[in-house]
């Protein structure tokens, strides 16, 4: 799924557009607020992270840093949260796009699940 289509489904606002679009679109969701949990799920993924997006309530720069470590290129903040300027600045330097959706974690996951996006735990794109 293209970033624009995802944004529409989640009624999301684009806060930063890196211009990056994964080959074959976004197809996998990592939904979490704890950074080590994010890394644990991504450690189990297959050959690359191109199609993975992150849904999170955390808006500090570490969320972007953690995403950069595992090549997540799209971060969507929940409950209409807007990150601090430092978070956006770091995302810009890492080529990561940022959106914010008014939906909660539960609703956002429900919307994307209904569209057949998969959980990162079952990621097997290039395996």
């Amino acid at each position: 799924m293209k970033r624009e289509e995802l944004g529409g489904l989640l009624s999301a606002t684009v806060l930063l557009d890196s211009g990056y679009e994964p080959e074959g679109g976004y197809d996998t969701v990592c939904a979490c607020d704890m950074m080590s949990e994010l890394l644990a799920s991504m450690n189990q993924t297959g050959q690359n992270s191109r199609g993975v997006l992150l849904l999170t309530n955390m808006t500090n720069p570490q969320v972007v840093r953690t995403s950069e470590m595992v090549d997540i290129r799209l971060v969507i903040f929940l409950r209409g949260k807007k990150p601090a300027p430092e978070t956006i600045a770091l995302a810009r330097s890492c080529g990561i796009s940022i959106m914010t959706t008014p939906h909660t974690m539960f609703s956002s996951c429900g919307i994307l699940h209904a569209e057949k996006l998969q959980d990162v735990q079952t990621y097997n794109r290039d395996v």
Binding site: D33, M34, M35, E37, L39, M58, N60, T66
Partner: peptide, 16 residues
Amino acid sequence: EMGFGAGMGLPNIQRA
């Protein structure tokens, strides 16, 4: 508050 403290860092190092 910054999203750390799950107690998974060292196990993650081991797994990776």
